[in-house]
Nucleic acid binder design. Structure first.
Lengths: 205, 205
DNA sequence: AAAAAAATCCCGTAAACACGGGAGTTTTAA
DNA sequence: TTAAAACTCCCGTGTTTACGGGATTTTTTT
């Protein structure tokens, strides 16, 4: 028997952590080496321990799992990442994969699916849990936003004016306005009200 | 020692079920008698077994946890129900409580919180996990709106201008503006962006 | 029937937005 | 290394909002 596959669980929901642990204990070839409730803890653990595989929640308290994914992959390219999402968050999976995740699982995944995902990914392949996705996919196609756009979107939704955003981000109000215009185009709207509504529905706020 | 408190876990996320189980095993006074992935299974189990306490997820595949809560309470009024939700779903908690739940827990709850919830509720009281809610809350205390205000709020969030709303509702734009002003006061905001954001978070759209 | 709440309508002004353009620089990806 | 993409900045114009005041008429509640 080779050494067990070392795993790090990253999720802020205690129950999900416990649940994953419980399921992973049933799989002899793996071992949960550590868990993390946020991005900071996660990065810290990766520096300390020799982790092969991360289970990474899409939503984290400090930075989004999607961004963390990118960060992990930059600093620790050899670490494999499996995204965790709920069914309603499935639209973000593509972004996670784009940021270097090797696969994803819904939180409703069974032991067998988890096992399959692990072996597939450790073999260097990508794991797509297609069945669970096609089921209901009338996407809420949230547009892909740039970092700046996300940043400004949130400030807009917080009710700041262009000028306020500009001075907070040390930008010209014209720049803010440009981003705002691009947000309008990407969301296909023509005013803040609809922008905020759609962004909120896409869980972007 | 009395008989253990019999518990039914209702959640479609395998990991949450496993996580709750793992945590509840650490509490000697309780016993997880069964688990259910959906409403149908849940009702079936309640008919078969003598369940004292349900942990019920807000989102279920067949009917919403909120509706199931009502259903359970109608058929089995003596069963206590603790709602389970993620932080982003906290706005639904009020509905769950209204449908007969005795309390709720966030899925990030600790063993101690879970334990406290159980003892509080079994003692016949309601359990409010105030700390986890206040933390970030601006208010999911959605203000009470009049019929007209709700109507206009939705149109505002759809991006209509005062004039457009006015002509759609056969009102003067001044009237619409008055309602808009009242909405601002009730939501304690000073612009549409925040209004829509808060309304969306309060699930009013 | 009286009081309270909701709904309707009016006005003026400064600030902010929506939208049409255009253009240079820096970063990322091919 | 080269082409996109992202980010930055600028302007002018008409529209709409935000917010300060009101007031009157329905409807609901007590």
């Amino acid at each position: 028997m080779e050494k067990k596959i070392s795993i790090l669980l990253i999720d802020d929901h205690a129950m999900v952590i416990e649940g994953m642990k419980a399921i992973l204990q049933l799989i002899p070839s793996v071992q949960v080496k550590a868990t993390a409730n946020n991005a900071f803890e996660a990065m810290d653990t990766l520096k300390q321990l020799d982790i092969q595989l991360c289970f990474l929640d899409i939503n984290l308290p400090d930075i989004s799992g999607i961004d963390l994914c990118l960060k992990i992959k930059k600093e620790f390219p050899k670490v494999h990442i499996i995204g965790l999402s709920t069914f309603s968050q499935r639209s973000y999976i593509a972004q996670m994969m784009q940021n270097g995740a090797s696969g994803y699982l819904l939180k409703s995944a069974t032991k067998e699916e988890i096992e399959e995902a692990i072996t597939t990914i450790l073999a260097g392949k990508l794991f797509f849990n297609i069945s669970s996705l096609d089921a209901n996919h009338h996407d809420k196609n949230a547009p892909l936003l740039t970092r700046r756009e996300k940043e400004i979107l949130i400030l807009i939704a917080d009710g700041l004016t262009n000028n306020e955003i500009a001075s907070r981000l040390f930008l010209s109000s014209h720049t803010v306005d440009s981003h705002r215009k691009n947000l309008f185009i990407k969301f296909d709207v023509n005013n803040v009200a609809l922008l905020v509504k759609k962004a909120s529905q896409a869980d972007l706020l």
